[in-house]
C-alpha cells in the first residue's frame, strides 16, 4: 500500500506535521511506525500528528506514537497529538497514553505548544 495516500506530510516552521488519512488498524499502524522511524533517522525533532480524519486506532499505533515521542524527548524534541475523535480519546485514556503524550484539540494549539 502506498503510505503517501494514507498519510500526508508537511512542514511548518521546522515542525513536521503528519496528517493521517486512514483508520489506524494493524496494517496502517505498521506504515505509521515506518514513517515515524524515518523521521527519527532524518533527525526531525518536532512532530505533530493530526488524527482529525481517524475513526479507529489500535494499540500498535498508540504504542508507535508513544515510543517515538519518548525517543524525540531524549533529544530535546517531542511528538504532540491533535484533533482526537471521542472514541480515540477513550482508547488513549484506556491505555494510559493520555498521561504520556501531549494531546491538543486542534493542530494550531499543538503547533503553538512548541
Amino acid at each position: 500500500m502506498d503510505s503517501t495516500k494514507l498519510m500526508r506530510l508537511r512542514e511548518w516552521s521546522g515542525i513536521q506535521i503528519i496528517e493521517i488519512k486512514t483508520d489506524l488498524s494493524s496494517y496502517a499502524a505498521s506504515d505509521l511506525r515506518k514513517i515515524l522511524e524515518g523521521l527519527l533517522v532524518e533527525k526531525v525533532d518536532r512532530v505533530v500528528v493530526n488524527l482529525s480524519e481517524v475513526n479507529h486506532i489500535n494499540s500498535t499505533a498508540v504504542g508507535a506514537l508513544v515510543g517515538v515521542a519518548k525517543r524525540l524527548r531524549q533529544n530535546g524534541g517531542d511528538l504532540k497529538i491533535c484533533a482526537l475523535a471521542d472514541n480515540l480519546t477513550r482508547t488513549f485514556n484506556l491505555i494510559g497514553a493520555s498521561s504520556v503524550l501531549e494531546i491538543y484539540e486542534s493542530e494550531n494549539s499543538a503547533l503553538a505548544a512548541f
Binding site: 494499540s59 504504542g63 508513544v66 519518548k70 484506556l94 491505555i95 504520556v100
Partner: peptide
C-alpha cells in the same frame, strides 16, 4: 504493562472492553 510502554496493551484492551 505500562502506559509508557509500546507493547502489551492489546490484551488489556480486549479484557477491558
Amino acid at each position: 504493562r505500562s502506559p509508557s510502554g509500546e507493547r502489551g496493551h492489546g490484551i488489556f484492551i480486549a479484557k477491558s472492553l
